[in-house]
Write a protein that binds this DNA or RNA. Structure first.
Lengths: 341, 341
DNA sequence: CTGAAAGCGCTAACAA
DNA sequence: TTGTTAGCGCTTTCAG
């Protein structure tokens, strides 16, 4: 077998010549889109097989206007630029979308860079945009092109776009806050991330609403998802000292939770005895920290499954749904918020 | 803004009309591949921006013969079909290849099904094939087409293909076996997977060589990667009972290690006291099992990085390397093989 | 049942 | 510096 690279691909014309038919007959014999005599069909198939013919996907797509491919854009910048610690979330989402797409035998393209003109654009029939920002520019660009888009989580400024899978944060955040309250917390500090997406906005809104309902003064601060492991302790230190320190912390970024636990320990604060600690996304870090840290699992696998389902339905011409699909994050209660009664 | 879907895309012709120039001028003004007067260039850019022009990637690729996209095929069947437990390995490899590709601003396509004629083939300039089988058919197919291929781990029957990133198993497997021996193991059982790939073959070869060198009778058995959690205990049970039970087990599939530990416990065997246990791939299961299980980390991130590097070099016309790139798996020694001295 | 030919949108060779 | 045009490989009318 010739394994040299750069071999000129076999075209439909060569197959036609070999089979002694016209190229349109080859096309139809192979696609079965019009009746071809059994004999001819057999001859064509044989010729195609012998030559190792594989239809040029670009030519086909150019002609038909469809590539059969779905794009994926993961918006949060720290997903890619981040440390290995941030990788679990990225890997889970990317891995499960890829898995779902493979299950449906549909090609998935990771879209490299929508805006950079130096980067070739990709032939996609539709695009999944994961975790868009508020007023997301990439999302707007794709919608502007008229490309079918499905989002994983909503653009917080366009919460009602129907082609979306959303997470229903409020009940879960409330359940968490009630749980903290039950365990004795009276002064809960929320440390949100700085990415302006649903994952930061919605829980924050739910927190503020909860505080208001309870007549408690909200306490919030920001902790950028882009911080390194080293940055966190010194930023958190001041929040833990002084007489008005909170008795519970809810931190968005799961990887930072163990660091906060350490910083607390350095101040002589025990978890959960002196400080309750919870995170708004789950990770191995949180699970294996000591003590294990209560966290919200965003159910990336389920998000992926539904998003792929939506996209394929949409590409098959399904009607616009009445509204987004809602999934509920799962609260994983662990020792960090459970006091010995 | 019109966000209706199914909008007809803007073509180069419309941009040309709007800018009052020919289509080739548009093409060249935008690509900069030939000198265009500043005034014209500006006019063209403006027209393109106003219309929201985005060059049709299929037309471009058809013409140029290149798509700028790299394919990815992950061969092990259980990677996709497997249980969620098998997901960590898949996710890590897929996630890190995707990350590397994004870093290089090059599109990555998950190839859905190379053989199914009903599935459209994808426009890729090259393809990364991960964990090929011995005499891998997909690999052969791609090589037959003359497509540039880089493999993550070698096809065990074509170990010398230069465009490959390989894992150097023998020294690590030997180190593990020596370690087990040091800890008192005299009768090591190897439980390989049933997938005929390098990850199963090479460690097995290393094990047999090690036994031979030491004059020990090898003991091996198979435990398919496709087994469910429930299947494993009853299959393992018989191996653990009887007077000739091994005093150490090396199991390929990491997720099975904790199950083996449980089965052992059910027989009254303590780990590591009565039985040493190690796995040939790492996972959270192994890390968080009790006791934590010694495992070989295949360094998927490093494999991904080098594979992407190789592929991009190859597509840029780099010369064929003298041989494969070798990486060394990392041995993570944990309690399951460490006896209190 | 089969063939001829148009044309998808773009790039690049060739002309001017 | 710019325009005209061939043609990448395929699908799909339209003729036969």
């Amino acid at each position: 077998m010739d394994t040299a690279s750069g071999k000129r691909p076999v075209t439909i014309r060569e197959v036609a010549e070999r089979a002694g038919v016209s190229i349109s007959t080859v096309s139809h014999a192979l696609s079965g889109r019009r009746p071809i005599s059994a004999a001819t069909k057999a001859r064509v198939r044989e010729a195609a097989a012998e030559l190792g013919y594989d239809p040029n996907p670009n030519a086909r797509s150019l002609r038909t206007g469809r590539s059969g491919l779905v794009g994926l854009i993961l918006r949060p910048r720290y997903a890619v630029a981040g440390t290995p610690d941030r990788a679990e979330t990225f890997n889970r989402l990317v891995g499960s979308i890829a898995t779902e797409m493979l299950r449906h035998k549909t090609g998935l393209i990771h879209v490299p860079d929508l805006h950079d003109p130096a980067v070739a654009s990709v032939p996609m029939d539709g695009c999944i945009v994961a975790h868009p920002y508020g007023g997301d520019t990439a999302l707007a660009e794709l919608l502007g092109r008229g490309l079918p888009v499905v989002t994983v989580e909503e653009d917080p400024e366009q919460p009602d776009l129907p082609w979306a899978v959303r997470l229903d944060y409020p009940p879960v955040v409330e359940a968490l806050l009630n749980h903290l309250n039950d365990q004795g917390a009276r002064d809960v500090l929320l440390l949100s991330g700085t990415e302006d997406n649903a994952w930061n906005r919605r829980p924050r809104e739910a927190y503020l609403a909860w505080c208001k309902r309870r007549g408690l003064p909200p306490r919030t601060a920001l902790l950028s998802e882009g911080l390194t492991q080293r940055d966190v302790p010194e930023l958190v230190q001041p929040l833990l000292s002084g007489p008005d320190r909170p008795d519970a912390i809810v931190v968005a970024t799961s990887d930072f939770a163990p660091l906060i636990a350490e910083a607390a320990a350095a101040q002589g604060l025990r978890i959960p005895d002196d400080l309750l600690l919870a995170a708004l996304t789950d990770s191995e870090h949180a699970r294996t920290s000591s003590p294990p840290i209560t966290a919200m699992d965003l159910t990336h696998e389920a998000l992926a499954e539904r998003a792929v389902e939506l996209m394929l339905a949409r590409l098959s011409g399904a009607e616009t749904p009445a509204g987004p699909v809602f999934l509920t994050p799962e609260l994983r209660l662990r020792e960090s918020t459970r006091r010995r009664d």
